[in-house]
């Protein structure tokens, strides 16, 4: 599993993830109120300068932004038909600025830094029962389990092929049931590490083993 992060040592990379994300949100809001082509054109130029400053190779930038092009073409074409060239250009520029800037944040910020920023942003929600540190944990767990599930999926597929079955439910149901079974063992492993229900893990991580037998798990 590769991240889209493109490593380099530049001021853009060095900017804290939280700052970059805040700027993105601010610009994302601003472009919808910017109604003049020169302003949007200048913004696009500024984003291009940032790409240069971040030393993102053109090839990487292209690969990241190319998927949006078919939609962009479609939308601009529709706009030309219904609202004329001026509006079409505005809308096209707006989408381009947003997507390019968002991709720049993705390309220059490590996944772990983004997770940390998200955790920090969630901290004020703690009184509501949100536990930010869990976000980091589950994100790491999911990334770790993607190859495992992929392997399971390939296995199930191979088994169906061997029997000459190609129905999609015949693929999905075994995959789902296998994964759900996997969750049983994984849940126990988490309990053993004191990640389970909040009360206990907050009290003490060291005494987890002693307390863990009293887990009131009602699942069958």
């Amino acid at each position: 599993m590769l991240s889209l992060y493109h490593d380099a040592r530049t001021p853009v990379h060095a900017l804290p993830a939280g700052v970059k994300l805040s700027i993105l949100v601010a610009v994302g809001t601003a472009v919808f109120f910017a109604g003049s082509a020169p302003v949007l054109g200048a913004s696009l130029g500024a984003v291009a300068l940032l790409y240069a400053l971040a030393r993102v190779p053109a090839r990487v930038a292209w690969r990241q932004s190319a998927p949006v092009l078919p939609f962009l073409v479609l939308i601009v074409a529709t706009q030309v038909l219904i609202a004329g060239w001026v509006v079409a250009a505005l809308v096209g520029l707006r989408v381009l600025v947003l997507v390019a800037l968002a991709n720049l944040v993705t390309l220059t910020t490590r996944t772990s830094a983004v997770v940390a920023a998200v955790e920090a942003a969630l901290r004020p929600l703690r009184p509501l029962g949100v536990r930010p540190e869990r976000v980091g944990l589950v994100v790491a767990m999911t990334i770790r389990f993607i190859p495992v599930i992929k392997e399971q999926a390939d296995l199930v597929r191979a088994a169906q092929r061997a029997r000459g079955v190609e129905r999609s439910t015949a693929f999905l149901v075994p995959l789902l049931v296998r994964t759900l079974r996997l969750a049983d063992g994984l849940g126990e492993a988490l309990d053993a590490r004191g990640v389970g229900s909040g009360e206990r893990s907050r009290r003490s991580r060291a005494s987890v083993r002693a307390v863990r037998t009293s887990d009131p798990q009602g699942d069958q």
């Binding site: 869990r134 944990l137 589950v138 389990f145 993607i146 994964t179 759900l180 994984l186 988490l190 699942d219």
Partner: peptide, 18 residues
């Protein structure tokens, strides 16, 4: 939040990716 629920959530997100 029970640990098994955390496991289910993480695993299902992985299924979604796959």
């Amino acid at each position: 939040v029970r640990s098994k629920d955390i496991a289910l959530v993480a695993l299902f997100a992985a299924i979604m990716v796959v």
